[in-house]
Computed example of a mutant assay.
Amino acid sequence: MADNKLPSGIDRVVGQRIRWRRKELKLTQEKLGELLGLTFQQVQKYEKGVNRVSAGRLFEMSTAMGVPITYFFDGAETFLDHDAGYVAEDGDAIHAPVMTSEILDLIAAFQKIEDQSLRKSLLGTIQAAATAFDGKQQDED
């Protein structure tokens, strides 16, 4: 049985959403820490999902970052449903997809494109490239 105090998949999703919003606001970990009365190391641990964020702290973050508290859970159902059957080598931990700075930059840039037809075209191109790459990977296996 897992220790209930250990971070879970949802903790990592929440951490990624904290990081994403902080980057959207162009805040450093230090600046966010100052706003919340935390060290940048604690912000870093929350973002990486190493430490759980309490309900009270999450409420403070939502207020400081100008988003509803539900923002931090957006997309979590999809991730948890998709990976519900996944069992990691280290037990029953569910691992969230890694949101690298490159992925966050891509998302931020994509959101700035106001032309819907251009956004659809770019998304189609990226999806086609991903499908082609996935097909090549399977051929190599």
Rank of each mutant, 00 (worst) to 15 (best):
L58S: 03
H82T: 15
H82S: 14
S54V: 09
D83P: 00
T70V: 09
T63Q: 07
G75D: 07
A55F: 13
A84L: 04
V53H: 07
T63I: 04
E89P: 03
F72A: 04
P68R: 11
G85D: 02
F72T: 06
A55I: 12
D92A: 09
E77C: 02
A55T: 12
P68S: 11
D92N: 13
A93R: 14
E60W: 00
M65L: 13
F79L: 15
F59P: 00
T70M: 09
G66P: 04
A93K: 13
V87T: 13
R57A: 06
M61D: 04
D74S: 11
G85H: 00
I69C: 04
D83N: 07
V87E: 15
G75Y: 08
E77L: 09
F73E: 08
R57P: 02
G91N: 09
T70P: 00
E77H: 08
F72S: 08
A93H: 14
A93E: 13
L58V: 07
G91E: 11
G66Q: 06
A93W: 01
E60S: 05
R57E: 11
A84K: 11
D90P: 10
F59L: 05
G91K: 02
F72Y: 10
D81G: 00
A84T: 01
T70N: 13
D81P: 00
G85K: 01
D83S: 10
G75I: 06
D92L: 13
G85E: 01
I69A: 09
A88C: 06
G66M: 07
A55K: 15
F79R: 01
S62N: 11
M61I: 13
Y71R: 02
T70S: 14
T78F: 05
